[in-house]
Amino acid sequence: MPFERQELNLPSGKLSYFVAGSGAPLLYLHPAGGFSVSKPLEALSERYKIFAPVTPGFDGTASHADVTSMEQLADLAARFAEHVIGKRCDVIGQSFGGWEALWLAVKHPGTIDHLVLEAPAGVPAGGKGGLPSDPAEARRKLFAYPDRAPPVTKPVEQLQGNRRMLDHYGAASLSDAVLPARVAAIAAPTLILMGTKDEIIPPETGRFLKEQIAGSHLAYVYDAAHVIQSDQPERYLRLVSAFLERGDAYIVNWGSSAASAIPGGTT
């Protein structure tokens, strides 16, 4: 289903957002590259009504004067959810958006039903990882399969502007001085997705969150780099759909779609 661009006037400024699909509401918080439509998002829109606010300052939008940190960005997302969605919803946060989603879960737990964190930034990575400043090097680390990535349709100036906004939100280092000590308060059912080839957000991040968030689930998506939903759209969709549908019980094989682990066997 196509994503339509809409606008919301908030006291802090205008907020652009994309919306698509029908069904239970799903808040999608985009990565540092800005908003773009992926195959899994399209597929999810067949069962969920997806709301994707554009972070102020990204993709050519204006920044909001009093929103200058990841924590304040999460407050803004909560205001957006309150005005536009109006009830508790599932949340997917991807990378930079995962960082925002973590703050949202910490500060506004009533907003979130299920939380999916796709290679989230903002928490300790054991000194590893990071986003290269060179665009070609960054792209090499973002995608294990560049040919599967969505075509680059945004102007170069817009992509450079997105990159500058990381500084605006104090996010250039991909780490948050305060957030790590707060994530243990997250009570929402949480799925943490990590790509096995991710060199930007390393496994240490996933382990840290799994350890800190009681009852959370950590899943590695094989043969995916940082943008999991691009490198492995089917695996991503299988995991996320199962988790959003069944919550903690997604770890039980219901025999409908998951392949058997048994050689010579079928489900």
Partner: peptide
């Protein structure tokens, strides 16, 4: 134990 080896318990 069915979770451990990802086998459908219903079967």
């Amino acid at each position: 134990e069915y979770i451990a080896y990802n086998v459908p318990p219903s079967d």
